[in-house]
Design a protein around this nucleic acid. Structure first.
Lengths: 231, 231
DNA sequence: GCCCGAATTGCAGTCGGTGCAAGTTTGCAC
DNA sequence: GTGCAAACTTGCACCGACTGCAATTCGGGC
C-alpha cells in the first residue's frame, strides 16, 4: 500500500514536464522506491508502466474528454506500443478507472465468512465494506482521479458498476459460507445492497472533495436507507 | 400497451419459419393490429422493424452467444441494411435489451411529483415503481427475453444498469419537485435505492420464470431491505 | 556469459459504430 | 392521382477499439 501511495505522490501529482515524447524514464524513476525489500526489477517496471499508463490516460482524458482520446495517443504519451496497452488493460475505459482485481482474499474476508467480527450481519458487512474501501489496489489518489473523470462520463460510471457487479460472485460466495441457507436474508438483496452502499459511499466521498476516507461515508448512507425504509 | 402485447404475442412466440432471408413480410404482418385507431403506416412499419430487429437479435444471440453474433448477421436475418440497424439502436447490446426511452412522462409521474397519491414517500415510490414496471415500452415478453439473455451475459447486465442510471436524472428531477430541499432524505440515496429495488424486483421476477408481474416483487424486496437494515 | 521464460512489439485483420450523400417511401394537399 | 416535402433507408468510405500471431527483447537465475 505504501508503495503505491509513494509512487503516486511522486509521478502523479502533476503532469511534471513530460508533455511530449516517451515518458519511460519518468515512469522507471517513479517506481524507484519499493516496499517489500526485494521486489524484482521486472515487477517494479510492470507497476511503473501500469501507473504511467493510467496517469497518461487521466491527463489526456481530463484535457480532451474520453471519446476524443485514442488508445494510440495514450500509448504515445506513455511511451509504449498500442499492443502493450492491451496487455495491461482490457479496454480504454479500464485504464481510466485503473481497474484491477480487488484483493478481497484477506483475513478480513475470512473473518466475515466465519461469522465475525461482531456476529451481527449488518455491522460485519459494514466492517467488510470499510476494509475494502481502505485498501484500494491502485492507491487512493489515482482511484480518486479515476472517479473524478468517471463522474462526467456516463459510460465510465457504467463500466465501474459493471466491474463491481463482477465481484458480486465473490461476495455471494462469502455470504453463502456465512449464512448457509438462512432464508431471512435473501442473497440477492444483501449482495446488491452492499454494492450500492459501497457505490454511493464512494460517490459521496468524491463529491465531498475526497477528504478523509470513503469508508467514512458508509455509516451515513446506511442511516439514510434506514430512515427511508422505516415503517 | 395492448398493441405491443399483441404484436409480441404474434411475431415473437417462436422463430416461426423464417430462419433465412428477409423477414420483412413477417415483420409487416406482425404489426397489422394497431391500437389507437389511426396510426400511420409509417409508424406501424417503424415499430414492426424495431421488433423484427429485436427478435432477430434474440434468436441469434440465444443460439450463438452475444459475441459470436455480428450486427451484419442480425441485419441479414431481419432483412435490413446494417446502417438502418444503427438508426434504431445505439449499439448491438441495446438491441438485445430493447432499450428505448422509457415513458415516465405520465400522470403517474405528475401525481408523484405533486405529493400524491398517499403522501407517504415510501408508499408513493412503491406506486411509481409499480406503474413503471407495468408499462414497459416493448412489451412484457420481449422484455423478459432480453433479461433472460442478459442474465448470462455480464456485459448486458452492465448496459442495463447503465441505462437505468441514465433515468436517474429524470427521477432526480421528479424527487426534487416533490421534496424541495428536504434534507431528511438525501437524493442520492433515494434515487439509487429506487433503482436498486426496481432492478432486484425485475431479477426476481425473471428468476421466478416471469410469472405474474415484476411489480409483485417490489413489496418483498422492500421488506427484505427493511429486515436487513433494521437497528 | 548463457539460457529460459516473461514481456514488448509490429502487423494484419475483424468488428462496432458514424457521417455523408444519394435513393425510396409516406403523408398530405390540391 | 399528381406533386411535393419530410421521413426513412441504404451504400460507402472511414475511424478506432481490440485480438491473434510470430518475431524480438529483456530480466533473472545459473
Amino acid at each position: 500500500m505504501k508503495i503505491l501511495d509513494e509512487g503516486s505522490a511522486a509521478s502523479a501529482a502533476e503532469p511534471s514536464g513530460a508533455q511530449r515524447g516517451p515518458a519511460t524514464a519518468d515512469a522507471a524513476e517513479g517506481a524507484r522506491a519499493e516496499g517489500p525489500a526485494a521486489v524484482g526489477l521486472r515487477e517494479r517496471k510492470k507497476r511503473a508502466r501500469r501507473e504511467a499508463l493510467i496517469d497518461a490516460t487521466h491527463r489526456l482524458v481530463a484535457r480532451d474528454g474520453l471519446d476524443a482520446v485514442t488508445v494510440d495517443a495514450i500509448c504515445e504519451e506513455a511511451g509504449v506500443s498500442t499492443r502493450t496497452f492491451f496487455n495491461y488493460f482490457d479496454s480504454k475505459d479500464d485504464a481510466v478507472l485503473g481497474h484491477a482485481p480487488w484483493p478481497l482474499t484477506d483475513e478480513a474476508a475470512e473473518t466475515f465468512a466465519t461469522g465475525g467480527p461482531t456476529g451481527d450481519l449488518l455491522a460485519d458487512l459494514r466492517v467488510l465494506v470499510t476494509h475494502v474501501l481502505e485498501t484500494p489496489p491502485t492507491g487512493h489518489d489515482r482511484m480518486r482521479r479515476g472517479f473524478e473523470l468517471a463522474a462526467h462520463e456516463p459510460r465510465l460510471l457504467a463500466k465501474h458498476i459493471a466491474w463491481m457487479e463482477r465481484s458480486k460472485g465473490e461476495l455471494t460466495a462469502l455470504l453463502t459460507r456465512r449464512l448457509g441457507d438462512d432464508p431471512s436474508h435473501p442473497l440477492d438483496v444483501v449482495t446488491t445492497l452492499v454494492l450500492f452502499v459501497t457505490h454511493t459511499a464512494v460517490m459521496r466521498w468524491d463529491a465531498n472533495g475526497g477528504e478523509g476516507d470513503a469508508a467514512d461515508q458508509v455509516d451515513a448512507v446506511i442511516a439514510d436507507i434506514r430512515a427511508l425504509v422505516a415503517p
